[in-house]
Design a protein around this nucleic acid. Structure first.
Lengths: 235, 235
DNA sequence: CGACTGCCGACTGTCGACAGTTTTACAAAC
DNA sequence: GTTTGTAAAACTGTCGACAGTCGGCAGTCG
């Protein structure tokens, strides 16, 4: 067999049914095939996907932990609905994490990190010129993931990853976030400049501005508060 | 019936088996009945607890999302082991969240928030005098939960709650964190003073000091890096 | 005509079982 | 003694099924 020529990491995707179902559900929610607040029937999903209820349940639990679904005991799972306050909260938390990250990163800004970020900005700019909105968003998020990664705190990155699921939901709920390509480029270049300067204050100002722009784009157009968004405290 | 005199919220606790199993597992891990890195057998747990494997699996998934367990495909669940770096990361993230929270809280410091926090400090001081170490930790965490809550960002609080599970694990892995009662008291009173001052800089200094002390107490005595702690990136 | 009560359908929570895979134990060969 | 190959045992991933519960609807009483 020619297996030796392949990447050492497992290529045969042993992708669990759970992950497949989770991916399917995530896409369906992001693309609004399920409306916010809608109830998801486990049996219906099992039938549609041709699997049993066990993986569907586990996938739903996974999406619940990611904030895309809400579980109500003996009632089932509902698609998370976000009101304006929750929108603000998500972006505020993002600001919190990224402020900290850029601060840490400025302290330990290696050439490796610099090159990786510059390269990602190029990829992002290229994506911004194309028509694929989804890819643009993903490359944008990837840039920020890299920032968090090189900040040197994996737990911080994990928290950010947890937030990105909701972030994608926020972005998806707004039909148009299409910035002009040059806006995207300069906005990210400013972050690189700030990092290169090494100044904590400059970095903070840059990230505040950067996220402030994104927030403004998204928050505009959010209407009524949905009542399904906030799960009550569980202690 | 005298039901009308009781709280309107549901009294009969519909506690799922999943939650019960999750609580049991959490306690067992915190109290080190399961050692870090140890493999958990689903069938064994089902037999021990007298339930089927389904709720055990779901509870394990829940604890995985909380960072107390690690799942390896086709291998099962393992108790999370934390190395020194991960310890630092947890406290660094905590610092990140609480810095942001105290900043937000200082902007909107209501008398209601002030009274709630002061009351909680009293409860904490009382707990510090007793012998119940667990209760002291819980009351301490509860104080910080209140801070996050009154900061006005529920998503921030949720992130903190997610972190507290790992935080408890960190604390549990250290045998002695026993601060003197007066240290605990003054440490928290300083936070109240800082909030009352309304100065962002003062607040930041106070929270940095507060968490710095806690971190020092915990990080000391962490030895070898455990290999099970870091799950590789999944994208 | 409105409110309450009991029943019905649908669904979730839980269970036991089967198939495929990983681990372990053991024997054989170098 | 170390390594390799094989087989059994244990375990996870998945499935179908049953029981208890929830929401809605019809029937009944005031």
């Amino acid at each position: 067999m020619a297996l030796s020529t392949m990447a050492p990491k497992a290529f045969i995707q042993h992708q669990n049914l759970v992950e497949q179902v989770a991916d399917y559900l995530t896409q369906a929610i992001i693309q609004q095939h399920f409306l916010p607040g809608e109830r998801l029937s486990e049996v219906q999903l099992s039938k549609d996907l041709g699997v049993s209820r066990a993986p569907v349940r586990e996938a739903a639990r996974l999406l619940e932990s990611r904030g895309l679904l809400i579980s109500k005991p003996r009632r089932g799972f509902f698609v998370r609905a976000l009101n304006a306050v929750e929108f603000e909260d998500v972006f505020d938390l993002r600001l919190c994490l990224e402020r900290h990250a850029i601060d840490r990163l400025a302290e330990r800004y290696s050439v490796e990190a610099q090159r990786a970020l510059e390269q990602q900005v190029e990829v992002l700019c290229e994506a911004a010129l194309g028509n694929d909105e989804t890819r643009r968003i993903e490359e944008d998020l990837q840039f920020h993931r890299l920032m968090l990664h090189y900040a040197g705190n994996e737990r911080l990155l994990k928290a950010f990853d947890g937030l990105t699921h909701e972030l994608r939901l926020c972005i998806a709920l707004i039909t148009k976030t299409h910035d002009a390509p040059d806006t995207i480029a300069t906005s990210h270049f400013k972050l690189l400049e700030a990092l290169a300067s090494g100044s904590s204050a400059v970095c903070r100002e840059a990230i505040d501005y950067h996220i402030g722009v994104a927030r403004k784009f998204v928050v505009r157009g959010v209407g009524e508060p949905g009542e399904l968004g906030s799960q009550e405290s569980q202690r």
